[in-house]
Write a protein that binds this DNA or RNA. Sequence first.
DNA 1: TTTTGTGAAAGGCTTCACAGCC
DNA 2: GGCTGTGAAGCCTTTCACAAAA
Lengths: 216, 216
Amino acid sequence: MSSAELADASGVNAAKVRKDLSHFGTYGTPGTGYDVDFLLGQIRRELGTDQDRPVVIVGIGHLGHALARSQGFVSAGFKLAGLFDNDPRTVGEEVGGLIVRHVSELAELCARERVSVGVVTTPAFAAQDVADQLVSGGVGAILNFAPALVVTPDPVLVRHVDFSAELQVLAFYQAHPEAVRTRETVPPQRREIDSVEHAVEEIDSAKAASARPLGL
Amino acid sequence: MSSAELADASGVNAAKVRKDLSHFGTYGTPGTGYDVDFLLGQIRRELGTDQDRPVVIVGIGHLGHALARSQGFVSAGFKLAGLFDNDPRTVGEEVGGLIVRHVSELAELCARERVSVGVVTTPAFAAQDVADQLVSGGVGAILNFAPALVVTPDPVLVRHVDFSAELQVLAFYQAHPEAVRTRETVPPQRREIDSVEHAVEEIDSAKAASARPLGL
DNA sequence: TTTTGTGAAAGGCTTCACAGCC
DNA sequence: GGCTGTGAAGCCTTTCACAAAA
């Protein structure tokens, strides 16, 4: 598959695909393109998602439920190591094949299972407290869905997924159509994408596209 | 409140706060700083979130439930105009004060209520179909949570929130600690933030911070 | 011929640093 | 003295365009 095909399938510029992949190594063949399966393996290795890193979810409300049951973990190279809540009505429930535990066990389990990422889906007021416990359990990264700022000591990474902010971005572009970066009008239509980090998705969707010639 | 305080409260550089705000106008006073309430109003006006834009959610599974019940809409300047699903067991249920309707009514309601943004929380296989119906109902922007690429005709904006991609970014930085952009070590700790578009949040959190001098 | 990998150019974003204002 | 608004510098990302490889 050529860089142009990968680009079309994922919505980016072909030069960007080649440049991004070149940061990892020389995986393509001039005149032929890339071997998609090989590429997938290499990218997963580079991303560190080839070894099923353990993840916990804290806060098993509707959002926690949704994430726990999603297939997002397995396809992304993670495995669910634990679910936690502090509501006695939720603790003990089975979700996605795991029993929900009480948050009092959080730090200990994280340390024991060497949990890599903690996903915070609690209400805002509990987010920082949960993050602190994750950190004390040795978790190296936090994905925060709570609408609250979470701060951590230096080596611990935090990413914040902010639903309201996404809506506001859309509102902004609707209020200022002149600020919209025009999409190229060649088919297939493109979506915006951020950077190197989406490489696996690019490949995944390209692969899916090649498997189904006509739409979904 | 000074740009330095706003910056600390939201995790960005003070010069960036000033530069970003300067794109909208001259709202600060040298020697004094910014009037937070005035600033909030101006930013909301610029973002176009001062007029309660109508939003629909399609796909009332756990994620749709979570979003429908969140306070994210009101605080961000939106209002829920409709909830849709195609499962007869879900249609008719009340969620967040609204009755879930059947997707067959989607396009019509969007047109009638002049819906601004459609939030897609369906399974992947349904996302493109739902997006098409949103577009035919005249919706101008789509926020897609389904793990599927959604394409739209040119003026319709799409934003994709990708849970797996967020996890993979964290995995990448854990696998490559040398690639982590070092945070400044001065207190208070900072989080990463993207750009101008987070201005309302910066202000919101700064305001909240000023209201509670000591933590949460 | 087709397509890669990559220097170089272009473009954009962030930060610095300071004149000017309060 | 403190702080804003902003030109200029620095840095990073994206795109172009082409020599080299198959």
